[in-house]
Design a protein around this nucleic acid. Structure first.
Lengths: 247, 247
DNA sequence: ACAAAAGTGTTTATAATACACCCATGA
DNA sequence: TCATGGGTGTATTATAAACACTTTTGT
């Protein structure tokens, strides 16, 4: 076996919904399991002497190479049959796999779901030893995922939408410099509704957490937009009270 | 031993923050452990073939005799030392307690916290086999609780405050019939701030989820207030969208 | 008739919404 | 110069907040 099951707490796992954003919209990081060719979320187990949060941080670091990620627990999935419903694994037992592996993966797991907001450009996604492919998949084009991972993603998105004013949405998902339009599109992707351009811009700028830079240069037969970045300290201070967006 | 540790998932527990309300304010149900004389939250373990939510429901039913409780998971507490920090248990090992018991309680537990909103009048609190006293304690008079239970309560209250518009606050915490003043005091207890009487009343009544009954009769040298109850269907329908209160 | 608390109304301030106007840019 | 999209302004509406007035009741 590739890992030593003795080191981990049995029956306890973490699953990470790693969210990115680019001009196409929100993306979720998924990976394909070698043995069965099915897609799932990056996840892992909890070391016997490791904080639960730490386990999630470790998974994230191993998977996308981000060492100080934004990571927040949102729900613990504890249905007794949440893995038993997965029939696509059943042939595995007939394969040439060590019994300890089968025993470990055959147990019931209670899994805690974490959301991470990352900047796609800062990521260096790497498959793990169980997976052969890793993919930033547009949220609305996700394939069927193993186990209950599809509903874990759904829970994560609901959580983000619900907590939108208290999560570092812009700061974590956008690159250092961005245009107001990009920020607006980000909020629109999450809320899945159009926002008024003028009102959004005014409301945002009134928050006083932006630094305005030189003009955008690149193409487009139109007025070039300003580039903004966040004033980190002011952003963090305001986030505690909630960063309201134009609803 | 009083229970068979073989039946339960090792290392996994649930803790319930059971919240009630009366004219004195918010109350939390706590119980005192026989062996050590310390107060803690009602909690329990998860059967090997039982949903996590079901375990919490079972604990609640056993503790306050409510069979269809409002119960919602809010956070999973997974710090590796969340129980190890409790030194007041250390003498237990010297006592006359079965080794299986010590082994079980000595493990690291990852515990999922649940909030329950109950009507004090409908409750019939019963201590369990490990506790000798059960007590509805005013939120702001809570004693030191074992392990990290104090921070679990804190997390629960933060959760309620945060989700106040999406939780059946009035419906679950108040008796069938209540006055507007009682409803207002309930919101004030949770938010820990005074609300304007007139604005609160108007905003609430505009929601259209109330049924107005005959006049209150009992004492007080003043105008008797109306009694209200909730229109259950309308309440539930509105709750999904959020029941806004006067902030 | 008075105090106390309930019910209701009024005014003002603030924020949300819709939409209009002008400006800069590259084709 | 024209189309496109950016930046900003304005009018309207809705909501929040503060507080005043009236009503009912028991003493």
């Amino acid at each position: 076996m590739v890992f030593d099951t003795e080191k981990f707490i049995p029956g306890q796992s973490v699953d990470c919904v790693i969210v990115g954003f680019d001009k196409e919209g929100l993306k979720i990081l998924i990976l394909r399991w070698k043995l069965v060719g099915l897609w799932g979320l990056p996840g892992g187990f909890v070391l016997k002497s490791e904080d639960l949060d730490k386990a999630a941080t470790r998974v994230l670091n191993e998977r996308v190479g981000i060492s100080l990620p934004f990571l927040q627990q949102f729900h613990t999935f504890g249905k007794k049959d949440r893995r038993a419903n997965e029939t696509r694994f059943s042939h595995l037992s007939k394969m040439q796999v060590p019994q300890t592996f089968l025993d470990w993966f055959g147990q019931r797991f209670i899994s805690t779901g974490y959301v991470s907001l990352v900047n796609l450009n800062d990521c260096d996604p790497k498959p793990d030893h169980l997976s052969d492919l890793i993919h930033w998949c547009p949220l609305h084009e996700l394939p069927d995922l193993i186990y209950d991972h599809s509903s874990i993603v759904e829970g994560a998105i609901d959580f983000i939408r619900n907590q939108i004013n208290y999560l570092p949405i812009g700061r974590r998902l956008l690159p250092e410099k961005f245009t107001m339009k990009e920020l607006q599109q980000l909020y629109e992707s999450i809320l899945e509704k159009k926002l008024d351009r003028g009102n959004f811009q005014r409301k945002m700028l009134k928050l006083g957490i932006f630094i305005r830079h030189e003009k955008h240069l690149e193409g487009g037969a139109h007025k070039a937009p300003y580039l903004y970045s966040f004033d980190g300290d002011k952003y963090d201070a305001l986030l505690k009270k909630g960063i309201g967006f134009a609803s």
